[in-house]
C-alpha cells in the first residue's frame, strides 16, 4: 500500500508543470497566507495576510495577490514573488468574496454586512460603484465575456446578475437556502450556484444576451452521512465544461458531477469542512481548503482521486494558484 501511494505521488510529480507553480491559501483564523509549491507540495512560507483573510485571487499576470481582509475592511495586496505587502485597495465593509475581471482592472467585492457589491478600480485604488443587492451578499461569479457579474445573497437566496456596463441588476433568480458560490462554464453558456443550507446546486442556462433560465438542481446523497451535512459551498468546473467539482463542507467530501448530464459520479473524501477549491493553472490538480483539519487536499483531476493533503495555517478558507 505504501509503495503504491509512493508511485502515485511520483507519477504526479513527473507529470507536473515544468516550472514550479505556487498556491496561496488564506487562513481565516490564523490571519496568514500559506504559500505551497505546486510541484513538490511543500510549504514554501507563511506570511501575515491581515485580519480574517478569506477571499483570495491573483492578477491576470500572476504577479499580484489580492486578499479580502474581512476584519480590516480592506483588500490587502501582495507581491506573489517577494510576498511584500503593496498598497491596499478600498473594499467597503466586511469583504468576504470577490472576483477580478479578466483584464485585471476592476474588482467586484461582496460586502456581507451592507447588502452591497462594491466595484473597485485596482489601478487608481478607488471605488467606482456600490450596487445594492440582497441580504448578505457572498458568492461572486463573472461571465467569461465579463459582461455580467453574478452575486449570490445568502439570506435573500437569489443570484443577482449585475451588468458590468452600468452596474445595475438585470436579472434575479431565486435559488435554494444560503447560496454561497457562483461559477460559469468557460463557454459562458451555463452557471452553477451552490446553496449551502438548501443542499443543492442550481443550474442555469445562459442565453446569448446573458439572460439566465433555471434548468435544474443537483442534489447529493452519501450513504452514512446525514443529509443535513451535505452543504455545497465552493464549486469549480473544468474548462472543457465536462466536470463540476463541488465542495460539500462538513460532509468532508468533494462531489464529482458530470456537468452535462448533471449526474453525480463520485464523492472524493478530503479534509474536514471543505470550503473552497481551485485548479492549478494547467487544470491537472484541484486544491481544496479544509477549514477544520487545517490542511489542503490535492486532487488529481484526470484520475478524480485525492493524492495528498498538506498542512497549512489555521482554518484555511480560500486558495488561488499561479504558474
Amino acid at each position: 500500500m505504501k509503495r503504491l501511494l509512493l508511485t502515485v505521488a511520483c507519477a504526479a510529480l513527473t507529470s507536473g508543470p515544468a516550472l514550479a507553480g505556487k498556491a496561496f491559501v488564506s487562513n481565516e483564523r490564523g490571519n496568514t497566507i500559506t504559500v505551497v509549491d505546486t510541484e513538490t507540495w511543500e510549504v514554501i512560507t507563511e506570511f501575515p495576510g491581515g485580519n480574517r483573510p478569506r477571499g483570495i485571487t491573483v492578477s491576470p499576470d500572476g504577479g499580484t495577490l489580492y486578499v479580502c481582509a474581512s476584519d480590516d475592511n480592506i483588500i490587502r495586496v501582495f507581491d506573489t514573488e517577494t510576498y511584500e505587502e503593496l498598497p491596499s485597495l478600498p473594499s467597503g465593509p466586511d469583504p468576504e468574496l470577490f472576483i477580478l475581471e479578466p483584464s485585471g482592472k476592476r474588482l467586484y467585492i461582496a460586502n456581507e454586512d451592507d447588502n452591497l457589491v462594491t466595484v473597485t478600480d485596482t489601478e487608481t485604488r478607488t471605488i467606482l460603484a456600490e450596487v445594492p443587492v440582497g441580504v448578505e451578499p457572498e458568492g461572486m461569479g463573472m461571465s467569461p465575456d465579463a459582461k455580467f457579474v453574478v452575486n449570490t445573497s445568502e439570506t435573500t437566496n437569489m443570484a443577482h446578475f449585475i451588468s458590468t456596463e452600468d452596474y445595475t441588476i438585470k436579472h434575479n433568480i431565486l435559488v435554494d437556502q444560503r447560496p454561497r458560490y457562483a461559477q460559469y462554464t468557460a463557454d459562458g453558456k451555463r452557471l452553477f450556484v451552490t446553496s449551502e443550507i438548501g443542499g443543492t446546486v442550481s443550474v442555469m442556462d445562459i442565453a446569448e444576451d446573458g439572460a439566465p433560465t433555471l434548468v435544474g438542481k443537483i442534489g447529493f446523497e452519501v450513504p452514512g452521512v446525514q443529509p443535513e451535512w451535505l452543504q455545497p459551498v465552493g464549486a469549480k468546473v473544468t474548462s472543457d465544461g465536462k466536470r463540476l467539482f463541488v465542495a460539500l463542507g462538513p460532509a468532508n467530501r468533494v462531489a464529482v458531477v458530470d456537468a452535462q448530464s448533471l449526474k453525480v459520479l463520485d464523492y472524493i473524501l478530503v479534509g474536514q469542512r471543505v470550503w473552497q477549491l481551485n485548479f492549478t493553472p494547467d487544470e491537472k490538480f484541484l486544491l481544496t481548503t479544509n477549514g477544520n483539519s487545517n490542511d489542503i487536499t490535492i486532487i488529481d483531476v484526470a484520475a478524480e482521486k485525492a493524492i495528498k493533503s498538506v498542512q497549512v495555517g489555521q482554518q484555511p478558507w480560500g486558495v488561488v494558484t499561479i504558474d
Binding site: D176, Q177, P250
Partner: peptide
C-alpha cells in the same frame, strides 16, 4: 419549506 437561520442546518 426550508429556511436558513444561522444554526448550521435548515
Amino acid at each position: 419549506f426550508e429556511l436558513a437561520a444561522f444554526k448550521g442546518q435548515k
